[in-house]
Simulated scan of single mutants.
Amino acid sequence: MTKILILYYSSYGHIEQMAHAVADGVRDSGAHATIKRVPEIVPPETASAYGFKVDQSAPIAVPDELADYDGIVLGVPTRFGGMAAQMRNFLDQTGGLWHAGKLIGKVASIFTSSATQHGGQEATILTSIPTLLHHGMIVVGLPYSATDLMGLDEVSGGTPYGASTLSGTDNKRQPSERELGLARTQGRFVAHVAIRQSPGGNEAAHPV
């Protein structure tokens, strides 16, 4: 069975929720989904002072295990228009995988979050893609066949580069059903592409 890793970092639980939605989409397409997170590097006293959600059920990943999967979906919150340091720290430890070419040809995708509607979601995804390309990965986004990308009736995340959500400046806003739906669609699409890349893969039309 095609195996997809959803690897995320989440300070307040928004990306965590999106990760589970991506995993649901992966499973819908007949692939196996594993959810893991990267280690926290903020000191415990700082995390406590800022109200970080520390009781997350996903186990901590280690860099070398990325080679065990057919596809990897990164959940990366925005920090000033770029990748959160926790994910950057984790990916900076994948030099051994790069040197051995362990991730070449694997499918990769990214979803994100920001506090505000124009808070750098697209910039975060776009500036994260070079890391994946250096590893020789096949980068996929979220196609416009996901028609909720074009909705104008509510404030919502969602980009053709990957699903996204908004937390609000107080982090109290939770992912909407539209945003979670886009995350599920992204999971289905990633799994579909990964299955097609696998030996004997299914050439069925895209499921989005």
Score class of each variant (00 low, 15 high):
I72P: 08
I72N: 06
V73I: 15
L74M: 11
G75K: 09
V76N: 10
V76H: 04
P77I: 05
T78Q: 02
F80K: 09
G81A: 11
M83G: 07
A84I: 00
A85S: 15
Q86S: 11
N89P: 00
N89H: 15
N89T: 14
N89A: 15
L91H: 03
Q93F: 05
L97V: 09
H99Q: 14
H99Y: 14
A100L: 12
A100W: 00
G101K: 11
G101L: 12
G101M: 12
K102R: 15
K102N: 08
L103F: 11
K106N: 09
K106C: 11
V107N: 05
V107P: 05
V107M: 05
A108T: 04
S109N: 10
S109R: 06
I110D: 05
T112W: 02
S113W: 00
T116L: 02
H118M: 13
H118L: 14
G120P: 03
G120K: 03
T124E: 00
L126V: 14
S128M: 14
S128L: 14
I129M: 13
I129P: 02
P130T: 04
L132F: 12
H134N: 12
G136C: 12
I138Y: 11
V139N: 10
P143W: 09
Y144V: 14
A146W: 03
A146P: 07
T147M: 13
T147N: 11
D148P: 07
L149M: 06
L149R: 07
G151Y: 13
L152Y: 07
L152R: 11
L152K: 11
L152C: 08
D153K: 14
D153F: 11
V155M: 15
V155R: 13
V155H: 04
S156R: 15
G158Y: 00
T159H: 13
P160S: 10
P160E: 07
P160Q: 07
G162H: 02
G162Y: 01
G162C: 03
S164C: 08
L166F: 03
L166G: 03
L166P: 05
S167Y: 00
S167V: 02
S167E: 00
T169E: 12
D170W: 00
N171M: 13
N171A: 13
R173F: 05
R173L: 14
Q174Y: 06
S176K: 04
E177Y: 06
E177L: 13
